[in-house]
């Protein structure tokens, strides 16, 4: 089976000289969800920004058979939808409908097709009633759903979810995870939320200093890198 995403020895260095990615190899296959773990600043976000050409570094990336380069940008951005951590920054248009239709319009669809797709995507995330509302007045959970709809309206084959559960309360997180489970696309999940990864991901990779240090099942990676917030308390001996 051909990989949807095929990354070969990706390197990236910021203008100030910091090495952010240092030879990353990565594949994503149809239908699977891969969790990306790693400390803050380990290169996770830099990595996902490469997947739809928002950053371009050394090495080679192929998305559904298209090399990521300046000529292929629009095709690549159609295939890979990135849901950013902060929905506020992703919902920039005055109404929910206009925001969700933003991507389809950029794909060159007509107004009618674009709003049709937008309404369909809103229905898919359970936000049909909010089309005319202003994004500012939505709750955090609703904003996240609309942001996801904005991506789904472009009908991508791959979803990149950057910390999707932050800013949400536990029931909100749960219903969002259920939503993601219902979506057929292959997914990359960048997160610190191990519970969310356990629920969604088939496997996990671990980033450290711009490299992938480990790969395996979620449990495997969590155990190997001690990537859990559970505090292990030693039994304390009583004084008397």
């Amino acid at each position: 089976m051909d990989a949807l995403i095929d990354v070969r020895s990706l390197c990236f260095r910021y203008d100030d000289g910091t090495v952010a990615l240092d030879g990353v190899d990565f594949q994503l296959y149809p239908g699977e969800t891969v969790a990306i773990f790693g400390a803050n600043g380990s290169g996770k976000t830099t990595f996902v920004l490469h997947l739809n050409g928002l950053l371009m570094g050394g090495g080679a990336i192929t998305i559904c058979g298209n090399a990521v380069n300046k000529q292929n940008l629009s095709r690549v951005r159609e295939k890979v939808g990135v849901v950013f951590q902060d929905s506020e920054m992703q919902l920039f248009m005055p109404t929910v409908l206009e925001d969700v239709a933003f991507g389809p319009l950029n794909l060159g669809l007509s107004r009618e097709e674009a709003s049709e797709r937008a309404l369909e995507a809103l229905k898919q995330v359970g936000m049909s009633g909010c089309a005319a509302r202003a994004p500012y007045h939505l709750s955090a959970g609703e904003k996240k759903r609309v942001a996801v709809a904005g991506i789904l309206a472009m009908r991508p084959e791959i979803l990149v979810l950057d910390e999707p559960t932050t800013f949400l309360d536990p029931p909100g997180q749960r219903s969002l995870i259920e939503l993601f489970e219902s979506l057929p696309q292959a997914k990359i999940l960048v997160t610190h939320d191990v519970e969310c990864a356990r629920a969604l991901a088939h496997r996990a990779v671990f980033f450290e200093k711009g490299r992938i240090r480990g790969e395996g099942s979620v449990e495997d990676i969590v155990a190997r890198f001690n990537w859990d917030r559970t505090v292990i308390r030693r039994p304390t001996s009583s004084r008397h």
């Binding site: 951005r77 990135v82 107004r111």
Partner: peptide, 24 residues
Amino acid sequence: ARAEAIHLAMLARGFAGHFRPLAK
């Protein structure tokens, strides 16, 4: 920084330099 994040989010959704209006 927020403005840059917004711009990034726009690019990620295929923004190619011009806003196309939805409502007629």
